[in-house]
Amino acid sequence: MANEIIEGILEAIRLIFTFDPEVWGIIEVSFRVSLTSTFLAALVALPIGSFIGLRKFKGKRGVTNLINTFMGFPPVVMGLIVYLLLSRNGPFGTLGLLYSTTAMIVAQFLLAVPIITGTAKAAIESVDPALKETVLSLGANERQLWWELIKHSKKSIIAGFLVAFGQAISEVGAVMIVGGNIRWETRTFTTSIVLQTRMGEFGMAIALGVILITIAFIVNYGLTRLQTGAD
């Protein structure tokens, strides 16, 4: 076993530094899927989240509870739902999207929307109410107020985006189910690590693990920088 680990580490170093095409392919798919889904989710979730944070309305507490529940939605279940929707007999079966990166983007998009919505809402609500009043009293309309609040809570909003991205890139269940882990096509860091470990190909698994940890480290470093107040 010890031998296998050492061999695996050596293989990992080789794969990373020789820019192995399969490793690069996996990096490309992972980033494309996670970035696209998080970005699209932000486009939808930012307006919704900030609007909920901005307005007071009946049933706001219910909506908040709903968002909080979906923020912790089990990814595997989301994978199952998207699978059922996209499978040949499902309502969107004719689109033929199952086992494609598009299907993976859809699943991760649905997982990221509540996360970004919830953090954007919390960010807008955490802006000093005195600032909100000042901006309103100076004559800002709702759109102008919204923009001011976004500007003043941009750090928390970016943090929400990073959290969603971090979750997306390290998520395994949903992308496995809807992507199918097809080599050269829908294989990501996580699905690949699962497969390689099963097959005893530790080199590839360790190489991908190291890269994934590095990404996680960079994301968390960014989050810490944001939270400690460096502009």
Binding site: E133, T134, V135, L138, E148, H152
Partner: peptide
């Protein structure tokens, strides 16, 4: 216009 007790600036 509303001048507050404690000044708030953007």
């Amino acid at each position: 216009s509303f001048v507050k007790q404690k000044p708030v600036v953007r």
